[in-house]
Measured scan of single mutants.
Amino acid sequence: NQASVVANQLIPINTALTLAMMRSEVVTPVGIPAEDIPRLVSMQVNRAVPLGTTLMPDMVKGYA
């Protein structure tokens, strides 16, 4: 099963992502692949992401 990127904390809108904000977890539906975590660092979210939410490509500016 593919691990996805999950929010490790509440991430406010327009926040630049850091490693501490993300974790890898096997979830359904599948979100951004966990191997993309290094690429996500310093990218901004375009909405508030609650703790435990799977990051989807449309939630991260410049990812999709």
Rank of each mutant, 00 (worst) to 15 (best):
N1I: 15
N1F: 15
A3S: 13
A3L: 10
S4R: 02
S4H: 02
S4M: 03
V5D: 01
V5Y: 00
V5T: 09
V6M: 08
V6E: 02
A7K: 00
A7W: 00
A7D: 00
N8C: 03
Q9V: 09
Q9L: 15
Q9H: 11
L10P: 15
I11F: 01
I11Q: 01
P12V: 11
I13Y: 13
I13C: 05
I13G: 10
I13P: 07
N14V: 03
N14L: 10
N14W: 08
T15A: 10
T15P: 01
T15Y: 11
A16E: 11
A16K: 07
A16P: 14
L19K: 12
L19M: 13
L19W: 11
L19R: 07
A20V: 14
A20D: 10
A20G: 08
A20W: 15
M21D: 06
M22D: 02
R23V: 11
E25L: 04
E25W: 03
V26H: 05
V26F: 15
V26S: 10
V26T: 06
V27N: 04
T28V: 09
P29I: 10
P29D: 12
P29T: 05
P29R: 03
G31F: 01
G31D: 00
G31V: 02
I32W: 02
I32L: 05
P33K: 07
P33D: 08
P33Y: 13
P33L: 07
A34E: 14
A34F: 11
A34M: 09
A34P: 05
E35G: 08
D36F: 08
D36R: 04
D36L: 10
P38W: 09
P38D: 15
P38E: 07
R39H: 14
L40D: 00
V41C: 04
V41A: 08
S42I: 03
S42F: 09
S42W: 10
M43T: 12
Q44I: 10
Q44V: 06
V45W: 00
V45H: 00
N46Y: 06
N46H: 10
N46T: 13
R47F: 14
R47Y: 14
R47V: 15
R47W: 05
R47N: 13
A48T: 14
A48W: 04
V49I: 13
P50G: 04
L51F: 13
L51R: 07
G52P: 00
G52Y: 05
T54F: 02
T54L: 07
T54H: 03
T54R: 03
M56G: 09
M56C: 10
M56P: 02
M56H: 05
P57M: 09
P57G: 13
P57I: 06
M59A: 10
M59H: 13
M59Q: 09
V60R: 00
V60K: 00
V60T: 02
K61G: 08
K61T: 07
K61F: 07
G62R: 09
Y63P: 06
Y63S: 03
Y63E: 05
Y63K: 03
A64C: 09
